[in-house]
Nucleic acid binder design. Structure first.
Lengths: 153, 153
DNA sequence: CAGAATTCATTGCAAGTGCAACAATGTCAA
DNA sequence: TTGACATTGTTGCACTTGCAATGAATTCTG
């Protein structure tokens, strides 16, 4: 009859906490490989991966498809441009838009990056074993139901 | 036979990206409730939840158990102290250690916070439906296998 | 017991973040 | 056409973050 019932709540069994903690660890381990081997951040990796997949795209496009604020995209793109991995050109049709493109050097970087990414995913799937399909299904639901809301960390 | 095979890689099917995106959205929606209703951040929420569950604890303890850098814990604790929700006392036995404790005001805050957290988790479980056990199982594996690595955002 | 090594919490700093404001461009209606 | 409104990308700003350095306290070792 004391005030103890609240004490039963334990962060370690709290699903949102567990999800975020697992994601942070996954992300951090992955980011570490990219940073040490190639000197790029997660934001930059996302821009590169999307450019590789989609060809010439605008900042707005990337913002919409990659769960990043436009200012974050913009700055990541500037860093990539400074490093010579992408170019920015104003779109002829609508001069508010930029066309971001991989340079040959950027394509070469992506070609080295992707195998690392695929390998990391593969390790993850192996760790998960038969829990993998369940995770994928759950992520589908969460990504479908929750608003994009930009943030990353 | 062109250079296109790499193009097949799509961030949207990349498991680490999906995990992080889902976690960020979950976390952001949750943080929004806390911030608007109670004016506290996720870092502060974690400290409060752990103090509520564990009683008097040191910064080091929280760092180990809550996936946060000690500097982050330290600053969150200082903000909570300024707001009157916790106290800091030097431990008598080992004077390097702090004992963080909830004040009555902090206990009252937690009593209002926890139902919101439990309700949020409940909503999440309902959205997941029968995908929930699979997610829980996968998170168990990931949290067991991956190094703590601090970071959060 | 003295001095080296370790642990704990805080803080300075550089870098990154989100948000709001902004300039430039484009669209639409009267 | 003109003027109101919308959209795109960048930037200023205040704030947060992680890391390394620091100072205080404790433990270990010879």
């Amino acid at each position: 009859m004391s005030d103890h019932p609240l004490r039963e709540f334990d962060l370690h069994t709290f699903l949102p906490y567990r999800l975020v903690a697992a994601a942070n660890r996954t992300s951090r381990a992955f980011a570490e490989r990219y940073r040490s081997e190639f000197g790029i951040s997660i934001a930059e990796w996302r821009v590169l991966a999307h450019l590789n997949h989609a060809g010439a795209v605008s900042v707005r496009d990337i913002e919409a498809r990659v769960d990043m604020e436009k200012s974050k995209v913009s700055r990541a793109a500037s860093r990539l441009q400074d490093a010579g991995y992408i170019t920015k050109h104003v779109n002829g049709g609508d001069r508010r838009l930029l066309e971001l493109r991989l340079t040959p050097s950027g394509q070469a970087l992506v070609a080295r990056l992707l195998p690392v990414a695929v390998a990391y995913q593969q390790e993850m799937l192996e760790r998960l074993g038969d829990a993998a399909p369940g995770l994928i299904k759950a992520l589908d639901i969460l990504l479908r139901d929750l608003p994009p809301g930009n943030g990353e960390t």
